[in-house]
């Protein structure tokens, strides 16, 4: 998959995953892997700069928390602004998706 596509889709993907509840970097990666059946392979460490940028934008917020396995992890959660952004992102991606769908479905006879 091309780098630019991965970069473009990272933000809506992360926002959507966080909609289910707060999560941390390593789990986000694993969820993405599982969701895509292994076809989306993010280079691991670069997820963190992305998360930090999103935090700076204000779509997520983070906190350090001790996990059940007694390990300190940085958890990310959606902000209200993030929720709205996700809606906007969803609309954009669905419209693109719809366009492709119409393009790729065999056209019915127009006459």
């Amino acid at each position: 998959m091309s780098k630019t596509l991965i970069a473009a889709s990272a933000r809506p993907m992360i926002l959507s995953l966080l909609l289910k509840g707060e999560s941390y970097g390593y789990r986000i990666l694993q969820d993405v892997m599982a969701l895509s059946g292994g076809t989306i392979d993010w280079s691991e460490a670069l997820l963190y700069p992305v998360l930090h940028r999103m935090e700076k934008e204000g779509v997520v917020r983070s906190r350090w928390r001790m996990s059940e396995e007694k390990r300190m992890r940085k958890y990310y959660a959606l902000t209200d602004f993030g929720r709205r952004e996700l809606e906007a992102e969803k609309e954009r991606w669905l419209s693109i998706h719809g366009a492709f769908l119409r393009l790729w479905t065999p056209a019915e006879d127009s006459d």
């Binding site: 970097g25 390593y26 691991e44 963190y48 390990r71 300190m72 992890r73 940085k74």
Partner: peptide
């Protein structure tokens, strides 16, 4: 620290 916790996981 964040990346380290990732590494450990």
């Amino acid at each position: 620290a964040e990346i380290e916790s990732h590494l450990r996981d």
